[in-house]
Structures are given as structure tokens and as C-alpha cells.
Amino acid sequence: MDWGSIIESLFRGLIGESFIVFALAAIGLNLHFGYTGLLNFGQAVFMAAGAYGLAMMVATIGPAANRNFGWDLSESTLFWAGIFVGVIVFPVIFAFVMGIPTLRLRADYLAIVTIAVAEIFRIVVRSPQPGIKKWTNSSDGLTGFSGTFYDMSPFGTQDRYLFNLFTGNQMFLVIVGWVVLAFAAAVCWLLIRSPWGRVLKAIREDEDAARSLGKNAYSYKMQALILGGIFGAVGGMIRAIGFSVAQPDNFITDVTFFVWVALILGGAGKVLAPIVGASLLYGLLNFSDTFLREGVSADVIPDSIMTGTQVGQVRFMLMGLGLALLAAFRPQGIFGNKEEMALDDR
């Protein structure tokens, strides 16, 4: 077995691009669920919003606008416009679609509608109908939108960085990602310590009590939904830039579940939980994946138990089981505080 590559992949999981993406999405989910008590099971669609907002602006909407209105917007202009659309416009639209029908109702309704919206988006985006495919390119997804980003990279594309972990482009993406992540965590920290965050927590505990004290619970829930969605969208955008493609199947419901795992692992309702959780999650996932693959190819694990293609499946099984055990025995997260959890009388 090649321990070197196992360790390498462990570290790429702990600090790499997937960690950043899921930490950002989990920061958003923490704002939704951890602080406001919103059961959002459609975080993947906010991530998709970020990815498709950027990709469509650069690859389809922008060029179409140039053609039809005779504009001459450069790719980098479109790139920055795409960031705005992906981070603000799309998430706000999705949050309204999810929130307006459900935020006045019991928490379960939001759960169902968020999954529904995520699924609607995925089905529509991957539709082969020409009228839709023109904008989203069906299940193959959109490409050719990340050029502007990588053009800004100061790193050599041929070299490898940080103990050979990352290529130049990856290094650039990861560094930008860390900065964004640090910024997001800081914003979240400030929000939670403010009277605004106090209202969110009150709504999580008992919405009627908050309303009786003059807080417009609906408006606060919407603000939280939008803001958390924006964090998710930033994550999704980084994912798309990293893959250089925005594809519907990168944003399936299981992606949302992954975000939940990251959050629960770290302990919902704590500012650093998403970061710790996502890092642990991807560290474990990468480690087990490479470990099992190495085991299979070195014939330590016989083919009768697991073949190369089954490694991914076994890894998912372990993750599912881990999530179930964690939620059953340590719902407060790895580092959470049991007593505080016990106060929960829902």
C-alpha cells in the first residue's frame, strides 16, 4: 500500500477544495438550522444557484445578450456579473420561492418544499428540451466560465504547491476559498453575537414567543434563509469553478445530506462547527476512499468483498451509518455539550 498517497489525500480532504465548499454551505445551513431552526433540505439548490448563476451568465445568458442587444460585454465583465447573479440574484429568488409558502407554517413544510425546489431545479436544468437546453446544456452541464478566474492566478500551472498537494490552479482556488471562508465565518460570528442573532435564536426556540415580543418572525426567517442561501451559493460557485463545469448531478439531494453531515459532525449552533465538521468529513471520506482503493489494488482486500467500483459505495455506506450513529449518540456533535442539548424539549 502506498501510504504516501493515502496521507496526501487525507490532507487534501482536511484543507482542500471540497472542504471549503462544504464548510461554506454548512455555514449557511448553520444559520438556517443551527440558529433559526429552519429545516432546509435544499441547500444543494442554493449551491447550484451559485454555480449556474456564474456559468449561465458567462456561457449562455451573457453571449446571448451580446448577440441580441448588440452589446459587447467582455468575458471578465460577464464573470463579475455572474458572481453577482450567482451569489445574490439566484439565491434570493430561490429563498423567496421556498420561503413565501412555508415560513408561516410549521417547520416540516419548509423541509418538504426545499427538497421539492431542489428537485425541480435539477429536473428542469437537465431537461433535454431545446428551449431549456439552450441555457443549461442539459445533463452535460455548462463549461468555459472559469477562465477569468484562473487568469488571475499568480501560480504556475505546471508547478505543484504546498508539499505537492495542489496544482497551481488548485492552489489559487484554495487560497481564495480560505479567504472567503474566513470572511464568512467572521460575518457569521458577528451576526450571532448581535441582537439580530438573538432574535434568530428566539425564533428557533419558540417563534410565538418571539412574535409576542414584537419580533417579525417571518421577516427574520426570510433574512436567515436568504443569507444562509448566499453562503451556500458561494460554496457552490467555488465547486463549479473547481470542476470547471456546472452540472446538475453535482447538486443532487445527497449533496444536501453531506452538508448536514458536516454540520452535525461539528455540532449545529456553533460558529466554528461547519468548518470543523466539513474538514473532518472530507478528511475521513478521502482517507477511507484512498485507503480502500489502495487496499483493493494491493489485493489486501479481496475482490469478493469489494471491487474498485464498489469502494465508493462502501464509503457512502460508512458515511450513512456514521451519520445515523452520530445523530443517535452524539446529536450535539463531536465537541458539543451534552447538557445544552438536553434542554431541547422539542
Binding site: 451576526l191 448581535s194 441582537p195 439580530w196 442573532g197 438573538r198 414584537g214 443569507l227
Partner: peptide
Amino acid sequence: KLGATGQKGETLWRSV
């Protein structure tokens, strides 16, 4: 503290 009305810090942009 939640009970107090008219709190400036309860507006999103001011809260940060």
C-alpha cells in the same frame, strides 16, 4: 434582552 423593542442591532446590516 430579547424583550426590548426598537433595538438598533436587530436590523441585519447594523448587526455586523
